[in-house]
């Protein structure tokens, strides 16, 4: 009898924290990552870059497969035909007038993409976040009237660009509504906000988001997806061949 009670107590002590915080930070991040990854997707979109000289709009078509593979092809006049291919480990740039592919590596990844507030590094990031960061669920907050989990992520390694991140994730849909990127000492470097989400094929997808580099004055980059289809067969297979037609 006594034995049984102990077993129950142990069981209770295990279950109580779980019932109080029904979900851990890591799980939230995993879920948020999961909803962003589709088997496949095909989309049209635009990037609006605002800097000290004004606003510039570039349009693109993009394909993704799984979590890490993506291909972006620009369709706007100024950069028509330029492509960015991300494979699991590499990032390649294709320029119609260049006779070789440019493999981005090392410090080259730190350059900004199309003069925007997004660096190539930002595009490749997000892998193994769970293993690279200590994730703490700070609590809950409303963002634009939506209930969100607030998490802070502190880097365990020095090889990630942002030593600290703070993210606001929708409690229901696990959409990331807002993210802030900090230095180790807590200085705000970049800010990301999701401006609009849509439900497509039963999935919540961020259709418009704003990224701004806080180290520059008065700049922001808005990414808009105008048309997205998910889980459809694709004409591309995310190999280098896709970059040379």
């Amino acid at each position: 009898m006594k034995y049984k009670i102990i077993v129950i107590l142990i069981f209770l002590s295990l279950i109580i924290p779980i019932t109080v915080f029904s979900i851990t930070g890591e799980e939230i991040i995993r879920k948020a990552d999961a909803i962003q990854a589709f088997d496949t997707s095909e989309a049209y979109g635009e990037i609006r870059v605002k800097d000290r000289f004004g606003v510039k709009v570039s349009t693109f078509k993009s394909w993704t497969r799984g979590k890490y593979e993506s291909l972006l092809e620009f369709t706007s006049l100024a950069e028509r035909g330029q492509k960015i291919l991300r494979t699991e480990d590499e990032l390649y740039l294709f320029y119609p007038d260049a006779e070789e592919l440019i493999r981005m590596q090392g410090s080259m990844l730190r350059q900004s993409m199309l003069g925007s507030d997004i660096s190539y590094e930002d595009m490749t990031g997000g892998k193994d976040r769970v293993s690279q960061y200590d994730i703490v669920l700070e609590g809950e907050e409303k963002v634009n009237g939506i209930d969100c989990y607030v998490l802070t992520m502190t880097a365990r390694v020095r090889t990630v660009p942002y030593p600290k991140e703070k993210v606001w994730i929708d409690k229901e849909t696990f959409i990331v509504w807002k993210a802030e990127y900090y230095t180790k000492s807590g200085r705000l470097l970049k800010e990301m906000e999701t401006l609009r989400v849509e439900e497509i094929g039963g999935r919540m997808i961020a259709m418009e988001s704003r990224i701004s580099d806080k180290m520059k004055t008065d700049t922001e980059t808005i990414m808009v997806i105008n048309n997205i289809k998910i889980n459809i067969p694709l004409s591309v297979d995310f190999s280098l061949d896709d970059l040379s037609w």
């Binding site: 510039k56 330029q82 740039l93 007038d97 260049a98 006779e99 440019i102």
Partner: peptide, 18 residues
Amino acid sequence: DKVTVMSTTAARGTNAIT
């Protein structure tokens, strides 16, 4: 020899040419 040149453009994007 051929060299691929990268630069920032007047459209404030990037471009490369060989």
